[in-house]
């Protein structure tokens, strides 16, 4: 089976600015691939090259086995795209928007589109200018899926959406995988990628840092815990608990960084009187730091 996307030493410079540098990427047909990196890493740049919106400085790119430049029309026929900064025609209604885009594809199966609309509970009669961010994005998602493309390219599809809609989107994407569609999705938040993707590629400062199976990653997820105790507890107590990579006093409590399963930490916490505990996902840079510094030590 031909790979869905292959980039070989893809480089894009914007004058003196770095876009991406020597990027190698291979995405198999049928997988959901998470393209993960902080803002400015080069995710959008890569995606725009795939669609021939911008031209690489050097390197080779094939999409669905086709050359991304010479055979761009054939590529675009088989791809659905949701841009990161989605702009739609504000004076059209949702229905008019879909009709226009469907016409550009020479027609679509309206029964299928109707199903998508229903599933997302989207109101086709409203003007785009009257839609909320979430509903605009839903319309963007529908136009990307409307022709049952083999490959979906979604640039940060859920950023800025409320959790409920995010959840809907994740479900939508999972169903695409079940139908056998390939999904290439960029994101700057790890939990999202963990939730919906099979594999994840880390990009930072224009360079591909690593590609991992998501299953390999979940076991090593990193969390920050803030715990407040009824009585003061010394940080030293947690210093040697398995999984805890850092601990510091924080006001009346402790701040813990835990990699991998939380079990040992929770059992240790249970020895004390806990008043409150909050957990949050660290930002991506922290994940990189923990994930890779951890692995360097191991190897």
């Amino acid at each position: 089976m031909t790979a869905a996307i292959v980039t070989e030493r893809l480089t894009k410079s914007y004058g003196k600015n770095r876009g991406v540098v020597d990027l190698d990427l291979e995405i198999a047909a049928g997988e959901v691939f998470g393209f993960l990196g902080p803002n400015g890493a080069g995710k959008t740049t890569t995606i725009r090259v795939l669609l021939d919106l911008i031209r690489p400085t050097s390197g080779r790119v094939t999409v669905l086995g086709l050359d991304s430049r010479r055979q761009s029309l054939a590529v675009r026929r088989r791809v659905g795209f949701l841009p990161g900064e989605l702009s739609l025609y504000s004076h059209l209604t949702g229905e008019e928007t879909l009709r226009f885009f469907a016409n550009l594809r020479g027609g679509v199966d309206w029964q299928y589109v109707g199903g998508l609309v229903e599933q997302l509970d989207f109101d086709l009669t409203k003007k785009v200018s009257d839609l909320s961010t979430g509903n605009k994005r839903k319309l963007g998602l529908i136009q990307a899926f409307m022709h049952r493309p083999e490959l979906l390219i979604l640039d940060e599809p859920t950023v800025g959406l409320d959790p409920l809609v995010q959840h809907e989107f994740h479900h939508f994407i999972a169903e695409a995988r079940d139908r056998g569609q390939t999904v290439f999705l960029s994101s700057h938040v790890l939990p999202e990628v963990q939730r919906v993707c099979d594999r994840v590629g880390f990009i930072r400062e224009g360079e591909m840092v690593a590609v991992e199976e998501v299953s390999a990653l979940t076991g090593r997820a990193v969390r920050e815990l803030d715990v407040v105790f009824a009585q003061p507890v010394s940080p030293d107590v947690f210093a040697h608990v398995p999984g805890v990579t850092a601990v510091s006093a924080n006001g009346g409590g402790l701040h813990l960084t835990v990699a991998g399963p939380l079990d040992a930490t929770v059992k240790k916490l249970a020895e004390f009187e806990v008043v409150t505990m909050t957990s949050r996902e660290p930002d991506l840079e922290d994940v990189f730091f923990h994930f890779y510094s951890g692995r360097d030590r191991a190897s």
Binding site: L51, A74, F81, L88, L104, Q143
Partner: peptide, 10 residues
Amino acid sequence: GTLSLLLSYP
């Protein structure tokens, strides 16, 4: 901002 989406079509 609509040109990118437009040109992602065939």
